[in-house]
Structures are given as C-alpha cells and as structure tokens.
Amino acid sequence: METATKSRAPHLSDTQRLAWLRLIRSENVGPRTFRELFNHFGSAQAALDALPELSRRGGKKTYRLFSMDKAEAELASLYKMGARLVAMGEPAYPPLLRHIDAPPPLLAVRAREPLQQELTGTQKTLAIIGARNCSVAGAKFATKLAGDLSAEGFTIISGLARGIDSAAHQAALASGTIAAFAGGIDTIYPKENMELFAKMIAANGAAISEMPMGWNPRARDFPRRNRLISGMSLGVILIEAAEKSGSLHTARYALEQNREILAVPGSPLDPRSVGANKLIQQGAALIQSTDDILEIMEPKISMSLPLHQGIDEPAISWPAQDQADVDETSNPLNAKEQDRQAVIDALSETPIDQDELLRFTGVTLQTLQLILLEIELAGRLERHKPNKLSLIHSGRA
C-alpha cells in the first residue's frame, strides 16, 4: 500500500519549488499561513502575487517578499552541500510528519543518496530524547535501547543534542538515524557533535530542517524543532527528563499529535528524572526494557495513516500542476470593507474561537479566512491553540 502511494506521489517542478520556497520565507508566512494561502489562491505563485495587496488591506503599507535571487541562492547552496528541498507530498517527505498540525511545507533534507528517500520515507520510526547532562546510566540505557530498536528495524530520531540524543544517534549509526535541526541544515549544533554528524551522513543517516540555510538556532526555535522530532515518530521515548526540560515540550507535542509517549523511570532523588516520572504518573507507558517498547509499538506499526482519530490529512490541495483558475465564488479574492471592519472590530487582545467569530460577524467562512490572512500578513494577528485568534497590540506589531 505504502509503495503504491509513493509511486503516485507528485514532484514539484523547479519553478514550483522556487515559488514554494519564496512563499514560506516571505514575511509573516508560517506553515499554517502557507496552507491557507495555497488553498485560497490555488498555487504558491498566485499567493505570492497576492501577498503585498493582502498585507496592505490588513494595515501594513510595505511588505517584504522573499526574492527570487535569494530563493535561487538557497537552493544552490543546498545542492552544493548535498542536500535538497523536499515538499510535503513528495516521496522523501516523512509520511508521519504530514499528519501533524501545520506541517512544514518544505524540509531541507541532507542524506547520502540513494538512502535519502528510504530513510525519510519510513514509517517505522521512534524518537529517543532526554537530558543533555545525563548520567552514565542514562546514556548507557539510551545506547542499549537505540541499538536494540535499530536491530528490530526502527529508525531512531533525535535532536543531535548532548547527552541522551548523542548516545541514541551513536548507537543507531549502522542502521540509520535522523537528526532534526533547530537551525539551518548547514548549522551543526552543538559544534562538538560535528564528528558524530559526519559519521551519521557517511553511514545511513539523515538530517532535516525547516529553517533557512545559515540560520543559527535561538531558544524559541528548539520547541519548533521538537514538534518535528515527535511528528516524524510513532512514539517518543524519554530518558532522564528534568521537570522543565525541552524533552517535556517534545512529549507535549507527541500528546497533541496522538503519538505514543514512553518514559524510563528514574530515582526520585535525581532531578533529571522528575519530568519522566511525572509523565508516567500522568499515563505515559513505563519502560524498563526493549521488549516493553516492542510490545507497546507492535500494534502501531501496521496501522494506516492517520494513526488515530483526530489527526487529519492537512487541508492542502497539492497539485502536480498549478491550478490555473480560482473559483472567486468559493474563494473570494477581495472582501467587502464592511465585512473586513466587522471582523477587525470583533477581534481584541483576548483570544476568541474562530467559529464564534464566524457566528458573531455573519460573514462567510471563505471571506473570514481571507480577512484573517490579510490581518496576519500585516503582523497583527496571533493564533492560539486549539482554534483561537487575537489581535496583537500595536506596540508589538
């Protein structure tokens, strides 16, 4: 089934890939906004053409489009270092990642051909994460789990951090392991893991990133990276996660994405085990051996996507060819000024549910989506989970 799906999967043309890259790199466009724009206008290029006017309607006089020169330069830099840009829906795009909330439309993928597609296209994946300042016992257990699971055919995913991440990657070298980056695909972090990363690529490993080339990771980028780690995985295994560690961010994403959460218990006297122990109290599976993991994951491996009810196929029309025409009745290209003002007046700094906003204003869903795009591209809209919206204070815009 999966092979047949891959064989029918479309590929972007060079022109389309550049348009996708320009759109996701343009001002105030993130994965969710990309999807809304794409669905509304029918293609990335049509959305690009509309961005300046949309932003102007939203209240922003000048808008920064990502230039064609910069897009071509980024692609050239990727190819030069042996990486490429993979679009959601293409065969090399991680299949599980496609089913998370707001998946990245484009991923930079670096791997040794021809294993690139084989690695990122696998569905038998597990993440192993944990403390950077791990104990010897924690690193030893991570090494054993990663080695055993690799021998069982799992691809191990982690974040190339110190400690548990490094131990897991090292143990999975022979069968292939994937690192998710918080910075650009050319930015190895921490620097001390450059040798480990070189070994990963030389063997059967891969790295992915949604950030631009040359991007140095900031603190806020790591949670964004963590959603990729859990999103690519059937389950997330935590070893020595402190109470406020980044590993717990990954566990929260795993919960939202309906992934399995597995935690290794630790001493209540060790602060590095507080987070993992609390997860177990809250219902995470308690793991003491590889057999525990295999028993829990066996039913998940053969499940068809989506993994559970509640994970929907992203609402993005992914055409092999751009849609030449847009139905202006179902997807209006402009909104009436009174509708726009009604939506803006109804919004405030207090989050409101989108469905409630729709009922209150009385506009059509398509008109509301267009107006929200205008406000968001102007940098005036903030989205909150699960489906709430608020205006950003003018001092923060």
Rank of each mutant, 00 (worst) to 15 (best):
H308R: 15
L196P: 00
L279Y: 07
D292T: 08
E298V: 10
P306T: 12
I201H: 11
R225A: 03
I239C: 03
I239L: 07
R252L: 12
A251Y: 00
Y253Q: 04
R259Q: 08
E295T: 14
R272C: 01
K244N: 13
Q257D: 10
L307R: 12
P190K: 07
G275K: 01
L294F: 10
S304V: 07
A179Y: 06
P265N: 07
K278P: 01
G231I: 03
N216W: 14
E256L: 07
P190Q: 12
P212K: 10
I301F: 13
D186T: 06
I287Q: 02
M297F: 11
S166L: 11
E240K: 09
Q170T: 08
A285R: 12
M213P: 00
A171R: 02
M297V: 15
P217E: 09
I237V: 10
I287C: 08
L262A: 04
S302I: 08
E256W: 07
I185D: 00
M213Y: 13
D270G: 03
I188S: 00
G184I: 04
I311H: 14
S230A: 12
I293W: 01
G283N: 04
S233T: 06
R252D: 06
I239S: 00
S209P: 07
I311W: 08
S304R: 14
E195N: 10
G214Q: 10
K300C: 15
A263L: 08
E192I: 11
N216F: 08
L228T: 00
S233H: 05
S245M: 12
I296E: 14
Q309F: 13
L238S: 08
R218K: 13
N226G: 09
A180Q: 03
N277P: 03
L234P: 00
L234G: 04
L248H: 06
F181Y: 14
E243D: 14
I280M: 11
K191M: 08
T250S: 14
F222I: 10
L294N: 08
M213Q: 07
M232K: 10
T187G: 04
L305E: 13
I178S: 00
A206M: 09
G275N: 09
M213R: 09
T177P: 01
L248A: 03
V264M: 04
S209R: 10
A276L: 01
W215Q: 14
E240D: 03
I201C: 09
L228D: 02
H249V: 14
G246I: 09
A206V: 11
A207L: 07
D270Q: 10
D292W: 06
G184L: 03
I237R: 01
G275S: 04
Q170I: 02
A254Y: 03
A182N: 01
P268D: 07
G183N: 08
A198E: 11
K191A: 15
R220I: 11
R225I: 00
I293V: 15
L196C: 06
A171H: 01
Q282I: 07
L279N: 05
A276C: 08
T187A: 05
M200E: 05
I188C: 07
M303P: 02
I237Q: 02
G183L: 05
Y189K: 05
K244Q: 12
F181H: 09
R218D: 10
A202V: 13
L307W: 10
A207V: 04
R259I: 03
G275M: 06
